[in-house]
């Protein structure tokens, strides 16, 4: 509805309406204070305009009561806005447990998207309506930012680490996707679209036999082997020889990876670390950074041998390894 005014972008996520509400409230507060100040200035300027050149107005030094009022009242309003904004932010930072996982890798100047079931796409993101979707973002080169105005969300994709953002689309349609962090020459052409589909259409699209994917990269997207991310990760795990050391036998050179994801890992240094995606990533690329208690720093680095997408596949596979 607000969209019709031309002052708001489409609102197509559960989050969008809540951001708009805060925005409207802030416009109200701003209008109130801006009009108050402007009116006072105009009224004073007219009422107390200089009438003769030797006027000498009376001295007014100030008033503590007034100073306190206009410190405390704005502070109260500011705290209200702070709490409101914080509440929205906290919900943005806590993706629902049942969210659909999608991996996004940014590079100059394209977005590479990979769905768990294996389908890949470039500069497009297909998602089902009414289902929370969690994006795990990283970058191959410089910092990019995944911005979907219709969802009111944005998150930087930072090289060397994983960041997350989530949304639940509420309306079928096609929406702008922008890279909003300046990333070099073609920054303003690092754009694409998010396509929100009915769940059935999405399923059909995932398996690749639905309507053909639209856009310049359709061919690339459909040709990608529809092998699931975890399966691809398993293949890499074998090819790279990870299983030679990481096995659950006494005397193995590396710790067993069964059930490692989500656990607390005891380190040689005495500290312990929560095994999340970033920890697994670091351990593959920079194995000496955190040595697991009871093991030697013998693992070679895989820096340069695995791409960001390989890493995501490996990590997804490791996540499936449950402890027996």
């Amino acid at each position: 509805m607000l969209e019709k005014l031309g002052l708001f972008p489409a609102a197509a996520s559960t989050h969008a309406g809540r951001v708009d509400a805060l925005y409207l409230f802030l416009i109200g507060v701003s209008a109130f204070f801006a009009i108050l100040i402007a009116t006072l200035i105009v009224v004073f300027a007219f009422k107390y305009r200089r009438r003769s050149d030797d006027e000498q107005p009376k001295l007014i030094e100030g008033s503590l009561a007034l100073e306190l009022t206009w410190s405390i009242v704005p502070f109260g309003i500011a705290m209200l806005i702070f709490l409101w904004g914080a509440q929205l932010f906290v919900s943005l930072k806590t993706p629902p447990k049942n969210a659909l996982d999608v991996f996004v890798v940014g590079r100059q100047w394209m977005w590479k998207v990979q769905h768990l079931e294996g389908r890949r796409e470039i500069d497009e993101l297909h998602v089902p309506v009414g289902r929370p979707v969690k994006l795990t973002l990283t970058s191959e080169d410089v910092i990019h930012s995944f911005f979907v105005p219709a969802f009111r969300i944005k998150q930087d994709a930072v090289p060397g680490r994983y960041t997350e953002e989530w949304f639940e689309a509420t309306a079928v349609g096609s929406y702008h996707l922008f890279c909003s962090q300046y990333c070099g020459t073609e920054h303003s052409r690092m754009i694409g679209r998010v396509v929100v589909m009915e769940p059935a259409d999405y399923q059909a699209w995932l398996s690749g036999d639905g309507r053909p994917a639209a856009g310049a990269n359709a061919a690339l997207a459909t040709n990608a082997a529809a092998v699931s991310v975890a399966t691809a990760g398993e293949g890499l795990f074998k090819d790279l020889g990870c299983a030679t050391c990481h096995k659950s036998k006494p005397g193995a050179l590396g710790p067993s990876l069964a059930g490692v994801f989500g656990s607390q890992v005891q380190l040689q240094s005495g500290a312990s670390v929560a095994a999340d995606e970033s920890y697994l990533r670091e351990s593959i690329l920079n194995p000496d950074a955190k040595i697991v208690a009871g093991y030697q720093p013998v693992m070679p680095t895989f820096q340069g041998q695995v791409s960001e997408e390989d890493l995501l596949q490996l990590i997804t596979y490791i996540k499936t390894l449950r402890s027996s």
């Binding site: 951001v19 805060l22 925005y23 904004g85 943005l92």
Partner: peptide, 22 residues
């Protein structure tokens, strides 16, 4: 005054996520 008031929009977390870098 307008600059300061719109600073409140940017300081507020949930809203900044949308308007940041725009």
């Amino acid at each position: 005054t307008i600059g300061g008031l719109t600073g409140l929009f940017l300081a507020s977390l949930g809203l900044d996520v949308h308007v940041h870098d725009t």
